[in-house]
Structures are given as C-alpha cells and as structure tokens.
C-alpha cells in the first residue's frame, strides 16, 4: 500500500514539475510548482517525517509560493502569456536537464544505501534541542549564522524598497551639477 502511495506521489511530482516548466501562464506555473512541493511534503509524511513535512508546507507552500503569487499579482495580468521560447534554447535547456538527470540517477544508483532494521521516530523536542545545542552535532552556529543572514536580507530589502527616497537629495544635487556641465558644452 505504501509503495502504491509512493508511486502516486512520485507521478504527481513529475507530472506537475513538467507542467510547471512548460506552462506559458506564469501563475499556473507557480501553482503547478506548489503541487510539486505539496507532493514532496506528502513523501515526508509517508516516511513519518511529520516535522519536516509541516516545515515544507509552511515554508514552501505558505511562504515562498505566496511570495511568488504576490509578485505575479503585482505585475501580471490574467490574459498575458509568456513568449514562446526559441527552439535553440529549448534544445540547450533539454540537453542540460538530461545531463543533470543522468548525473543524479548515476549518483543514486551507485550509492550503497544501508538498510537498518531499527526504526527510530524523531521527536520535535529532539530537533529543538539539537538546534540549540553547541556540543558535537549541534546546530547552534548555523542557526545563528542563518538568523544574521536573514536580518541582513531584511535590511537590504528595506533599503532597496526605500532606496529612491533615501538617495533623493543626493541625486538632485548630481542632476544640478550635470545641467551645469551641459550648459558649458
């Protein structure tokens, strides 16, 4: 039964991944991508990684896809369609994808997956403790580094969004300067 569910999920993922790439309507492509991500969350649920599955849904489904949709909402109209890509580009992209697929398949098929008999369920509490532990195998350093990175990203976003207004005075001064040079010429 679980194998059947796995194959159904795998089929969904592949199908929507292809649909996402080939769709010429951008919001549809985003939604197909969402289905791919939900399918992956389904896989996590299947192997009992509930926490990871929920993270997948929250971060990718609720966060990133919503941001995508927002971007599309702001700039795109319902009736717009993306341009058809040239055959040459298609061929190059296809070849690159095939190469990537080949590398991945080769890596998977040659890796000796160890089979264990002991089944351990991962508790959320363990994950939490591990994230904040500074002993061996603890993740406190990457956790903190990522938080610093996120703060930097946030400030950067604010600066870009407000950039024109902050540099308004400066640009005015430079414009006055450039006008003077024009007069001289």
């Amino acid at each position: 039964m679980e194998t059947i569910i796995f194959y159904i999920l795998a089929a969904i993922i592949i199908l929507f991944a292809v649909a996402s790439v080939t769709s010429r309507k951008i919001l549809r492509a985003v939604i197909y991508l969402l289905f791919v991500l939900i399918g992956i969350a389904g896989l996590y649920f299947l192997v009992d990684y509930n926490f990871l599955a929920a993270i997948q849904l929250t971060v990718y489904g609720g966060g990133i896809i919503v941001l995508f949709i927002f971007a599309v909402l702001l700039i795109h109209h319902v009736e717009l369609e993306l341009e058809k890509t040239a055959l040459k580009k298609k061929l190059i992209a296809g070849a690159l994808s095939a190469a990537g697929l080949a590398v991945t398949l080769w890596a998977i098929s040659t890796y000796p997956f160890p089979v264990t008999d002991t089944y351990t369920s991962i508790e959320v509490a363990d994950i939490g403790l591990l994230l904040l532990s500074y002993e061996d195998g603890g993740f406190i350093l990457p956790f903190e580094v990522i938080s610093v990175l996120l703060v930097a990203v946030m400030i950067g976003a604010i600066v870009i969004a407000k950039g024109s207004r902050l540099s308004e005075d400066r640009s005015r001064k430079t414009e006055v300067g450039s006008q003077k040079t024009e007069v001289k010429n």
Binding site: G163, R165, E168
Partner: peptide, 11 residues
C-alpha cells in the same frame, strides 16, 4: 539614470 527614473525605480 535621470532623477525621474531614480524616483520611479519601483514603478
């Protein structure tokens, strides 16, 4: 980039 364009970066 003119002043106008700088102000309308996010159009």
């Amino acid at each position: 980039m003119t002043d106008q364009q700088a102000q309308n970066k996010i159009k």
